[in-house]
């Protein structure tokens, strides 16, 4: 870090963050089930919008699968499009 003189100022403001990881990769989930609303709910906001992967740490592939699952669950009224 000493070599990168620029970074030191930056580091001062950086809070400690635990490294994010993709839960589906870690657990080796074979596929993301749209019926499993309990899992899906942890990837949507209180308002019912999907969380971006930069917040959850989900990898690109699983984020795509997750999107499909959320859309399916919404279609069949297991999840809502918008929480009032």
């Amino acid at each position: 870090m000493v070599q990168k003189g620029k970074g030191s100022e930056h580091v001062k403001y950086k809070r400690f963050m635990r490294k994010k990881f993709c839960r589906f990769c870690a657990e080796k989930t074979p596929f993301i089930d749209y019926k499993d609303t309990r899992t899906l709910k942890s990837y949507i906001t209180e308002r019912g919008k999907q969380l971006p992967s930069r917040m959850t740490g989900t990898c690109a592939r699983h984020q795509r699968e997750l999107t499909e699952a959320v859309k399916r669950a919404r279609n069949i009224a297991l999840l809502s499009f918008m929480e009032k």
């Binding site: 657990e27 080796k28 989930t29 074979p30 089930d33 019926k35 499993d36 309990r38």
Partner: peptide, 17 residues
């Protein structure tokens, strides 16, 4: 019921890989 089904899925998730 659904709860049982979800539990079964979880078990498979571990067993399948």
């Amino acid at each position: 019921d659904v709860a049982k089904d979800v539990a079964a899925d979880a078990v498979e998730g571990v067993a399948a890989p």
